[in-house]
Every structure is written in C-alpha cells, then in structure tokens.
Design a protein around this nucleic acid. Sequence first.
RNA 1: GGUCGGUUCGUCUAGGGGUCUAGGACACCGCCCUUUCACGGCGGCGACACGGGUUCAAAUCCCGUACCGACUACCA
Length: 496
Amino acid sequence: MIRVRFAPSPTGYLHIGSARTALFNYLYARHVGGKFLLRIEDTDIARSTEESTRSILEGLAWLGFAPDEEIVYQSENAPKHRAAAARLLDEGKAYRDFTPKIETGDKSIKEAIVERARANQGVKNLRDNEYRDLPKAESDARAAAGEPFAIRLKVPMDGTTSFTDAVYGPLDRNYDEIEDLVLLRSDGHPLYNLAVVCDDIEMGITDVIRGQDHLTNTHKQILIYEALGAAPPRFAHLPLILAPGGKKLSKRIHGEIVSMTTYRDAGFLAAAFRNFLALLGWSAGEEREIYSMEELIEKFSLDRIHQSNATFNFDSNNPRRWTDDKAIWMNAEYIRTMPLGELLPFVKDELKSAKLWRDEYEDDEKTWFETTIDIIRERFFTLKDFSMQGRAYFSEDFDFDQAALDKNLKKFPDLRTWLPELGERLESLNEWTHDPIYNLVAAFAEENGTKLGVIMNGARAVLSGVAVGPSMIAVFEILGKERSIMRLKSQVAWNL
RNA sequence: GGUCGGUUCGUCUAGGGGUCUAGGACACCGCCCUUUCACGGCGGCGACACGGGUUCAAAUCCCGUACCGACUACCA
C-alpha cells in the first residue's frame, strides 16, 4: 500500500508551492490507490502558530484535499524523537556535543553560513568535532553533571549516500560533504531531519514527494534512516515555483499573492486552480490544458514531472495582472464552460456574501435566475464578477463604471432625451422578447438618424452600469420590461 | 567559497539523435463576427543560454563557460 504525506510547517498561510506539493501527493495517492496523509510540522516552536495551522487547513479544505487518516502533529511526537536520538546515542551512532551553542549575532543566518564556509575553504574536515570520540564514560559523566549538550549523528568517515529520485534520477553525495548533523538541540528539542525521518517511519510513508529544496537534505535523512535501521522510502522532488525574475516566492516581498486563501477570496474555483497548479511542473504530454480532477488522477505520473523550476507570472504594479494570466484565463474557462448546475452553488454563495441573494432565485424566479447566470457568465473571470460587474442584474443599487459612461453615454448628449423617449416607446410593447424589442430599438435609432450602436451602448451603460456584457437585447430581456424602462428614464447616470 | 541541481517563445509547456523551416496554451498584435465586449473564428509576433566536441545527422549525447536555484543552521 502506497502511503504519501503532505507535511507543511505552520509558519505562514498555505503557500502556492506547498499547495502544488499537496496536489501532487494527492494525485499520486489517488492514482495508485494509496493513502494521502497530512502532518503538521510544528517543531519550530519559535515560528509555528496555530493561526497558521488553521490557515493551511482552510486552504487544503478549499482545494478539496482531505487526509485519509488523522492529522499528525509533529510536536506531539517529540518524546519519540528524543527516544530515537537516545537510542542512537546508546548504540554509538550518535554522540553528545558539549560545544556551547554559537549565536549568529546580528548578521543574517545566510551570510554567517557563507562567511564561515568561505573561511573554512576546503580545509574543513567535517569529522573533526572534538566530542565525536569522547569516551562513553566521560560523556555520560559530563551529561550527568548537568553540562548542556546537543546530540549529533556520527556520520561515517567515508562513503557516499545515494538514492534514485523519481524526478531527478540517481543522485549521490560524499560523506565528507555532510556535517555531523544535530539531531537534538541542547534544550532537548528534536530538529527537522530527525523528526521527519522518525515520523515518516512511524506513519509508514512509502513515497516522499516534496520540494526540490530538500534534495540535499535527503542525503542526511538517508543517513538517519540507516542509523535507525529502517529502509528509506522512495523520493520524488518537485521543481520549485518561483517569482518573476527567478527569485523565490516569499510572503515578505510578494505578499498575499502566494497565499491560497487569496485565490479563494478572489473568486477562484478550486477546480480551476487545481488544474492550473497541476500544469506547473507537470504535463501529461498532450496539447491540452483543461483536465478534470478525475482526468488528472488518471493521467498523473511522477516521471512526467519537470526538473526545472517554473515561474509564477504576475505583475504587482498592474492590477489587471495581479496574478498569473493563465490562472485567470483558466478560471474564466471553468466559469463559462462548467455545467451550470455545478456553478450555481458558488454563485449563490457569492451573491449571499454580497447581500444580493434572494430565496426566490431558487423558487419562483429559478428559471429567470438560471438563464441570467448562464448568459452573464460568458464574460466573467471570477466568482466575484457576479456580484461586482453583474450587480445590476440583482439589485437597483449598483455603481456605474465611469469609463463606460464617458465612452458610451456622455459622448452623445442626445442620449439624454433619446433614452427616456425609448423607454416611453417600449411601454407599448406587449411581447417582451427579442424580435419586438430589437425591431423597436432599430426603428427608433433610424428615426433619430443615429447608429443603432449608439443607442445600444448608451442603453447598456444606463441599464447595467458597465460597458461589457451579453448581447444588449438579452440584457433587456433579463432585466424585464419594467426595470429596463425605469432605468432608461432615470437620469442618475448623467449626474455622475 | 564548496557540493548538488537546472537552462526550449515574455510565461506555462511538447519534444529525449533524422518526422523540428521546433508543436500547443496564456499574454500581446491584426483581421473577421457583432449593437458593445475581456466570448467565438482566423492569422501574426515570438524560443532550443553560449562555446566546443561526438555523429552522415544534435533542441535532443559529451565537455567547458555563463546564468539561475537549492543546500551548506542547536530553521523547516
């Protein structure tokens, strides 16, 4: 039985890259009929927050990735991690390091690392820790005396670790490039590599699918597996998702755009976003981009995952490009092509939260409502559009887009009298359907010696508040006779 | 600094020695449709990082260089 896990650390919201990792784990599990598990890696007490855990869970729930078993909280396993470290110590596979903890000072950690490495240039022997071969009795005595110590893994003097990554192929690393890594901090806290390995063993994980940033960690983890006497799982490392310019996507500099909840709140459909994410770093090798979840599951395979990082394209200075164009396009594609019945619940939620929902839409006005949604969704990109651009269809209290007014209304002052006149004329219509309306409007335009387009565009501005929308006659029909005439006669738009 | 990984249109990608004058999608531009439009249709722009090999033949294999990324922590 294949068992995979998604293991985020709760130090922020669900990051777009993490969401993609979760997706791939989920797709793989479903594809092979295995289990998809979730583990919250909250061992970093200084940075982990409950708020973050909640946000991650919310993001996963929105995407629809429910774990098949109880969620594991890594911090709760700390006693087991300590026991594992103690065992390795006992067996002589790890040792106590009494070196006092070094503070990094005010330099950034990265800088400190690079500086140290540069200074050591090629002369550093990673096996030269003075406590590595401290006699057991002495080590025990010092520990008993209360001297603080960290526990480090005793990496063998020479040899190499190697594994075959499902994405990157065979990889190996010399022991002399791997430091005797700390398993347990001097304050007793287990560190990442130990915790991950222990938990993966405990959870029976068979395949680890995670970001490529863990590629080099994998060698250290394999060393821990070996020390613990456990067989390592299979590994598949995913290419990273970067910001434009090839930089790492980060909360600090890129803000909300990296958070999953942003997309939910912006009116994205989870199905569309999953589809978009699936194509970032993976492809089925076909010339097509729309895949249902079932199709994704069926076609997914580790060996079609890319080795090169992908750029998530957006322009924070351009509101139209606030996120990746393709993601927006895909969402629009879903909105206009998915079965209407599947879309309706989402529209309902959106209208409800905008206080535009009326229960009649599911009762007396069901037909009107469904027809209307079906017509207006044609030009929409997100669920938000139903309550923003589409507001005029559901409420008398809607805003007018200034650009639409300038371009289609105010440019033709005659419309100020024409539109109310047209409204008057429309009163006489007995049958409120396409042909009669069209004929009347067309005749009206001709009488006044103007192009039909001028009347139509002006009417659109006044009736819907925007310049974009379905066929104008359809707007008349949707709005109905009474509301159409009322808005044609209204002068409010002229005073804005 | 070291180790490892990566590099095809602006972006996501197809391709894995000949079918590649490199295919698709998004974006962009043009035309058509149309009463408007960010729908639709048609078309256009646009890429194998660079240099050496190997080969009859290289985007595809090898080497080097450049660039990018990750790791190099008592962070995860």
